[in-house]
């Protein structure tokens, strides 16, 4: 238990570069070094992270903690995994509030903003491909849902959640009928 906490503190503190970086650290530590999960469970973990909400780091910590020590292990591993990032993020936000009027900081941020928009756009492209071109050909129903949703979000002030639930259910009914 103690060891799991230490390993996930380490993963939480050193996992720069997002989900894939976390998975490679999990493979190295939880599979090869400590043997908490085997290779088959690791591949399930990757699939489950894709299917369930939440960041891969959190999904992975929950899954490995669960396998190693049950629900308590899942909660402990998750807490340890997010704690280091939280502390650093809080410190950075404090600095940002003090510094963001300074012209030099604005200059630096003006380089970063287009990059962030680009990365978000790429995330959108990935999910668009998964939704509309699931097997390489255009899925007409998904494309129609996409277009209707674009219109809903750009022309109305509707919130995300009602649209998501309504379209999710209506789309599912249509998909199962045709």
């Amino acid at each position: 238990m103690m060891r799991i906490c230490l390993v996930f503190l380490q993963i939480g503190a050193l996992s720069f570069g997002g989900g894939m970086a976390v998975l490679s650290m999990i493979a190295e530590l939880a599979v090869s070094k400590y043997g908490w999960i085997d290779a088959k469970a690791f591949s399930d973990l990757v699939a489950l992270s894709e299917m369930t909400p939440g960041p891969i780091a959190v999904n992975a910590a929950t899954f490995v903690g669960m396998k190693a020590d049950g629900t308590i292990g899942a909660i402990a591993a998750t807490l340890c995994c997010v704690a280091p990032g939280m502390l650093i993020a809080m410190a950075m936000e404090g600095l940002y509030q003090k510094g963001h009027g300074i012209p030099a900081v604005q200059k630096i941020m003006s380089w970063l903003r287009p990059a962030v928009i680009a990365v978000i756009a790429y995330g959108g492209l990935t999910i668009f491909k998964a939704a509309v071109l699931p097997v390489g050909t255009i899925d007409i129903l998904s494309l129609s849902i996409f277009i209707v949703s674009v219109l809903l979000f750009s022309k109305t002030k509707l919130k995300l959640l009602p649209v998501l639930l309504f379209v999710g259910v209506v789309g599912a009914i249509l998909r199962l009928l045709f």
Partner: peptide, 12 residues
């Protein structure tokens, strides 16, 4: 599958 299309639209 339907929710994925909605989210893609929202991101766009």
């Amino acid at each position: 599958a339907s929710m994925r299309s909605v989210i893609a639209a929202m991101i766009a």
